[in-house]
């Protein structure tokens, strides 16, 4: 019983961490750009494919056998590449909708998501099929009668670390201050000699790179990745950010904890849990938004009349 509870607690935290890494990107981008970047999930899921491709390339050339070093290098490469893809997505598409109605940007990024998925499918060899993805850390710890995968601890630790880093960057570095200035008022920021376009690029890089870590963990947790996994990952990350309150980092984390919580709870307690997890997760989303129309930690903006 205890082991069972502990197991599920662990699952909950791991899932929350993965969702939060994606949700933070949504929240950050919304906070700065006031734009829903709906293809954020798809951008994030490019990362595991870059990892797979890089590992193969490394094995074929520099590293004779699959060493942990190759994997680490591949992950680092994937994070940077995906960060740049985010910047590119903004530069090619999203920036053209800065002053357009929110709905246009939403539909455009949904279409952009399809473009990204289709590109993965076409560029990656046999991209339509699911690809097995390695477990990043195979080792398991035995604590009493409990087996704890080191991978789980690693995911949680990295996520918490990323949250702290993001928080510090946003609150205590010149870059974070510039980002917040642009978020507050892009024109006044421009008067302060801050170039908004650079800030947008930086924000997209950060959000996408953090999302990439989430994408890699997601694939590693599932043990498999497919070109269209980004839809669900994106929807869940988006939901977490929204119910937490868009633009609030703490909200994104809280939302992730809630959605992962109901997800784990349903799977652990219901006989057909696996098939009903999304039903309950999204019922929770509706429920929260009916009670708190601007998300849990979202500011209710009183309209100026």
């Amino acid at each position: 019983m205890d082991a069972f509870v502990m197991q599920n607690l662990m699952n909950w935290l791991v899932l929350s961490s993965i969702y939060a890494l994606v949700a933070l990107g949504f929240s950050l981008l919304f906070g700065v750009l006031n734009v829903i970047h709906f293809s954020h999930g798809d951008v994030s899921i490019v990362a595991p494919f870059v990892v797979l491709a890089t590992v193969q390339a490394l094995i074929a050339t520099a590293f004779p056998a699959a060493t942990p070093g190759a994997l680490v290098l591949a992950c680092a490469a994937a994070i940077v590449v995906v960060g740049l893809i985010g910047v590119l997505a903004d530069w090619l598409v999203i920036r053209r909708f800065r002053n357009a109605p929110a709905m246009m940007a939403l539909v455009a990024t949904v279409a952009l998501g399809t473009v990204i998925r289709e590109l993965i499918r076409m560029i990656y060899p046999q991209g339509s099929n699911p690809k097995p993805f390695p477990n990043l850390i195979e080792t398991r710890l035995m604590i009493g009668d409990l087996t704890v995968p080191v991978f789980s601890l690693f995911v949680i630790a990295v996520s918490v670390l990323m949250m702290i880093v993001l928080y510090v960057v946003m609150r205590h570095t010149p870059l974070g201050m510039r980002i917040r200035a642009v978020a507050e008022d892009r024109n006044i920021a421009r008067l302060m000699a801050i170039s908004p376009s650079r800030i947008y690029a930086a924000t997209f890089f950060i959000a996408s790179a953090v999302g990439a870590i989430g994408g890699i963990f997601y694939a590693s947790y599932a043990g498999v990745v497919r070109f269209d996994f980004g839809i669900q990952l994106g929807l869940i990350g988006f939901s977490a950010a929204v119910i937490g309150g868009l633009g609030s980092m703490q909200g994104a984390i809280l939302g992730s904890l809630l959605i992962a919580g109901i997800d784990t709870l349903v799977q652990a307690t219901m006989a057909e849990g696996a098939s009903y997890r999304l039903v309950f997760a999204f019922l929770l989303v509706i429920f929260v938004l009916v009670l708190k129309p601007s998300g849990i930690l979202g500011r209710t903006v009183m309209e100026k009349v």
Partner: peptide, 25 residues
């Protein structure tokens, strides 16, 4: 019904969630 209070992106998510719930059910 939720459109009584929720708006814009938040309302969009409510409808997305409703669509997914119906599909899953």
């Amino acid at each position: 019904f939720p459109s009584m209070r929720t708006r814009e992106t938040y309302l969009a998510l409510v409808t997305i969630a409703f669509g997914i719930v119906v599909h899953q059910l």
